[in-house]
Design a protein around this nucleic acid. Structure first.
Lengths: 144, 144
DNA sequence: TATTGTTATACTCTATAACTATA
DNA sequence: TATAGTTATAGAGTATAACAATA
């Protein structure tokens, strides 16, 4: 039985992402982390003092959904908040957070390397440009 | 504020898929369909008489999750079941199902065309081969 | 014994509306 | 008036375990 959807880039994009995410979550499971936690830790580390609104905008996580998300990371002692003004709080990794991030980075690098290795050598240079292009919503009719 | 994850193919793959899916769901909303419904209708149409177990295996939907999924499509009069033997039932589109599928296909074709148009011309030939390669789990160390 | 369909259940992710307190 | 953080809630999507009926 063949999959009649296999010629549709949108469908294959979804399946590829789902498979990759499942694999990454498996690999992160020993740290009791999910891929979303990992991306969040990386972002805070790259931008210490970032607010949760800004972080949410970058990662495309709604403000409302950041709350339980952040609460968990804080409860586990990986992220701390520091008041910036009366309504804003900057996010920082704790030293424990940096420690778990180091392990996380190792797992992610291994995962990403494995991902790219599935692609035939000759096509590898196109992977990131194509994915970035697919990601961006059409702005003007460039290269129609 | 830059996204420090933008160099990771796995991350961009996820974001690209999420954005594409959201857009497709928007486009399908007038038909009160979701992308998962659409792929299911296409599959049944391509393989009339397929069982839900087989369909679930192809689409990577668990048997247990097929039940409410199929029930909705049947309730809306788009899919009917026919007993094959005592425990197996073949799935078929109703004429109403074929009618909604025709509209669905038009939306999907337009969506897929828009998706591919985001990619610079020179890279387009690589899109599907790369996505298919990323989808497949590594078997042996081919092309390391 | 293995498979099909089913029920029940739980967790993640996402989406929206509305509230508060601050800027 | 707009924004940051929060609460509550709902709907997809996905995962597992267990069961009955049948092959």
């Amino acid at each position: 039985m063949k999959d009649p959807l296999i010629g549709l880039p949108g469908y294959v994009l979804r399946r590829a992402a789902a498979a990759a995410l499942a694999e990454l979550n498996e690999r992160l499971a020993p740290l009791a982390l999910r891929h979303s936690d990992a991306s969040f830790l990386i972002l805070i580390d790259a931008s210490p003092g970032i607010t949760q609104s800004t972080a949410g905008r970058i990662l495309d996580i709604q403000r409302a959904n950041m709350v339980p998300f952040l609460a968990r990371l804080e409860r586990r002692g990986w992220v701390k908040r520091k008041k910036v003004d009366g309504r804003t709080q900057g996010l920082m990794l704790t030293s424990e957070g940096r420690s778990v991030l180091a392990k996380t980075r190792a797992i992610i690098e291994d995962f990403e390397a494995g991902l790219i290795k599935r692609v035939p050598r000759k096509l590898r240079a196109g992977v990131l440009p194509i994915l970035l292009a697919l990601w961006n919503r059409p702005t003007e009719e460039v290269d129609p």
